[in-house]
Amino acid sequence: MSESNHAENPDTSWREEYWKRNLRLMAILLAIWFTVSFVFGILLVEQLNEIVIAGFPLGFWFAQQGSIYVFVLLILIYAKRMDRLDVEYGVDERDQNGDRS
């Protein structure tokens, strides 16, 4: 753990704001995570299977292919968005040369 720098930076309202935006992003991405896997792949699979694309019944495709592609994308979007958020609030990590690490 590092030393807290409260003494020189008493204004901590940015923290709440940063954390809220992080939580909102998280909630949106987790909602998509739940929808593609549990809703499309399991709960609505029978209805979606009525639609067939390139030989794949759609519900079956979400369960065995689509949800996995979406999972990968969700993590990428999260990492990219958090990069931006970190810079905006000045909490991005820099090495001695000032480069992002």
Binding site: S2, N5, N9, W14, R15, Y18, W19, N22, D86, Y89, G90, V91, D92, E93, R94
Partner: peptide, 8 residues
Amino acid sequence: RYPATSRR
């Protein structure tokens, strides 16, 4: 909750 050890 915040990546950097101190805020820039």
